[in-house]
Simulated scan of single mutants.
Amino acid sequence: LEFTISTDVRTEKPNITTMMEFILLRFSDIPNFQWILLGIFLVLYLTIMMCNSVIVLIKRIDPTLQTPMYFFRNNFSIVEICYVTLTIPRMLTDLLRQKGDISSIACATQTCLVLLFGGLECLLLAVMVYDRYMAICNPLHYGLILSSQVCVQLVIASWVSGVPVVTGQTWQVFSLLFCVSTTINHFFCDLSLVFKLACGDAFTNETAVCGVAVVFIMVPFLLTVVSYGKNITNILKSPSSRGRAKAFSTCSSNLTVVVLFYVTASTTCLQPKQNPFEETGKLISLFYTVWIPKLNPIIFTLRKKHH
């Protein structure tokens, strides 16, 4: 009897700990539209890549755009290119193969990079807001404070700061035991849905992830709100109506991008753990992974044309 129990334990444990593959459901609930979706997302992806690449190229060749504001926007466009490349090509491949299997290593890598570039967007938006704050509230010292060296240091700090935290969080999550299901009702490896597949209580891990979200989302958001509050106050104090219009025009594109980003990000983060409307969450994810990266270059371009 003792020998039998020992054997059962040995055979159960590998079944729990050796899960090497997840299944992404993508849009399998609408099988008749798979090829249409493939065409739509391919066109959107190529558009996003082209628009952001044009912004990067123009910034390099146009001498009038060699300013801190366009330096930060150039980096933001590069991050957008990386961000959409993490999700859309994989989704296109799955739609083409009509299969959504993904290894645990590939899933963990995608999750890690999506979190990294998502956090990087938050930090770069905060840096861009700081740039507009200095330009409006301290214009006489703007060039001195935001020198080329300082701009490079701010971007490097934004790129590097999240790497150890996100890597640690991803390792912590994917070291959990997965024993219920391998199915993820999404088109990429979403961290919140990976949590639902874990055996036992993942409260500690979820608390740690929430803490990181507060640092990388809420802190930049609060800095953004304070900075724009001061910007608007200083703009309204300007005696020149033309000066006020020019200042508002300068801030309008950044503010639009910030609002779009944080509204969708907060909507996604505030979804309940037991969400009966997972398809809604998938649509929201489509908005911030596809539509916002497509809209951002248009918003920046319209502002430049108006200016």
Rank of each mutant, 00 (worst) to 15 (best):
E206T: 12
F300Y: 15
D94P: 01
T18M: 14
V166T: 08
E2H: 12
E12K: 13
I232K: 08
S192R: 07
L286A: 08
L120P: 02
I105D: 10
N52P: 09
E206S: 08
A208I: 13
V173I: 14
I55W: 13
K196A: 09
E2Y: 09
V215I: 03
G229P: 03
Y262T: 02
I105V: 08
E2C: 13
C82Y: 13
I105T: 08
E121G: 12
T93Y: 10
I184C: 02
G39W: 03
C189T: 06
L95S: 06
R26F: 02
S227A: 12
V180T: 12
T204S: 12
R303C: 15
P89D: 06
L95D: 02
P239G: 02
G119S: 15
L120H: 09
V160F: 12
A157Y: 00
S181W: 10
T87P: 05
I217Y: 06
V214K: 14
N185L: 05
R242V: 11
V214A: 15
E121S: 14
L57E: 03
L124A: 04
I23G: 02
L193N: 02
P276Q: 04
V257M: 04
F203L: 05
V165N: 07
V225D: 03
S181G: 12
F22W: 08
N231T: 07
S253P: 09
M69S: 12
L193R: 07
V165W: 10
S249T: 06
T182H: 14
P139L: 03
I156R: 14
D201Y: 12
I48G: 07
K13N: 12
C137H: 05
F41P: 01
C251I: 08
D190R: 09
I23E: 05
I292Y: 00
L236P: 06
V257G: 01
L176F: 03
F33Q: 08
C122Q: 00
V180K: 15
